[in-house]
């Protein structure tokens, strides 16, 4: 097995401050090897998104830790954490991924603004990524002019903007029809072949079967 690029240790997350508390994660330990394709599956409301947010440094755990490449991200300052998100991690949300007033191309370029792609190369690189997801002809389309599947493919392209090692996706095909789903899945496999570490929250059987590791979350814990 490759080195663990993502590791969680006794990860807990409790939402809410006083009266209504939700114990969303109850001690999750997982190790994800570099270059692998992993799936997180489980019933709705059992903590899949919460776990993915923690791994992606979008939220802080209540206790326990997340290590990315051996670095505990809870030790990082907000600015270092932002840097990590910009450089090392690409994130695709379940819905509402794109900045609505920017075109497909500009959405990808916006991510480069926070990464390290020199401004002069941004356009060419963004066009390359659009080609990778098969949307070269939609470079100047606004999100409202794209189908759901096309929007998700733009999101995937944007997640790859700064050439991150890790790609995290929260049900990227969750609300797509089967045809769009196929499009998106084929992109994901392509990217995986290129050597990225991919973690996907999904309900899709086909995808789960192809994954090297499957984590089933039940009631805030990993079912073994």
């Amino acid at each position: 097995m490759n080195r663990a690029i993502i590791k969680t240790e006794n990860l807990e997350k409790i939402y809410g401050k006083s009266a209504v508390k939700t114990h969303a994660l109850k001690g999750v330990d997982m190790e994800i090897p570099a270059g692998s394709l992993s799936c997180i599956i489980g019933t709705s409301g059992h903590g899949k998104s919460t776990l993915l947010h923690m791994i992606g440094g979008l939220d802080k755990p209540t206790s326990g830790s997340v290590l990315i490449d051996g670095v505990a991200i809870s030790e990082l300052t907000d600015s270092q954490l932002s840097e990590l998100r910009a450089q090392k991690i690409g994130f695709v949300f379940q819905f509402f991924n794109l900045l609505q007033n920017l075109t497909a191309l500009e959405n990808i370029q916006a991510a480069m603004l926070f990464g390290s792609v020199p401004q002069a190369q941004q356009r060419a690189k963004a066009l390359e990524l659009l080609e990778l997801v098969g949307l070269s002809d939609k470079a100047d389309a606004k999100p409202t002019e794209l189908s759901g599947g096309q929007q998700q493919r733009v999101s995937i392209a944007r997640a790859l903007a700064n050439d991150p090692e890790i790609l995290l996706m929260d049900e990227p095909t969750g609300n797509l029809d089967s045809e769009s789903e196929e499009e998106v899945l084929s992109q994901i496999f392509k990217i995986h072949k290129a050597g990225k570490t991919i973690v996907i929250v999904t309900h899709n059987r086909e995808l789960a079967e192809k994954a090297e590791m499957i984590f089933e979350i039940q009631d805030g814990k990993i079912k073994t």
Partner: peptide, 16 residues
């Protein structure tokens, strides 16, 4: 708000 979240997720710092 959601766009701010997206910007943060793609690496924007608080300062940005």
């Amino acid at each position: 708000r959601r766009e701010i979240g997206i910007l943060r997720a793609i690496g924007a710092k608080r300062g940005s």
